[in-house]
């Protein structure tokens, strides 16, 4: 997906290299090849390619990856805001 790039400098992904055991599960599940193993440790090589889906963090057995996972969907965010203000909405995506 090098042909599609979204807004830069916002992705919240970080890897705790101390905790990382180098199992490479994160490398396997990332749909955008954001993570690679360097010296048997996970390394974020394309931060701006990260869509924060959370697959890597979910599948990390030692909780070495932290990010704010979620669905990048404007109508979802709008619906949440409206709900907070007690405005009824129909479903989103």
């Amino acid at each position: 997906m090098k042909s599609f790039r979204y807004i830069e400098g916002v992705a919240s992904i970080t890897v705790d290299r101390q905790k990382c055991v180098g199992c490479a599960m994160c490398v396997n599940v990332c749909p955008h090849q954001v993570i690679q193993l360097h010296d048997k440790k996970a390394n974020v090589v394309d931060r701006d390619g990260c869509m924060e889906c959370g697959a890597c963090a979910t599948n990390c057995p030692v909780e070495a990856i932290s990010l704010t996972p979620g669905v990048g969907c404007a109508s979802l965010i709008i619906n949440r805001c409206l709900k907070k203000r007690n405005i009824n909405t129909t479903g989103c995506c």
Binding site: V10, A11, P31, G72, C73, A74
Partner: peptide, 17 residues
Amino acid sequence: MNFTGSTPYTSPSGVEK
């Protein structure tokens, strides 16, 4: 902007921004 929900590459942080 709402089409972000249908794409496979937009991050929630980016959409919010």
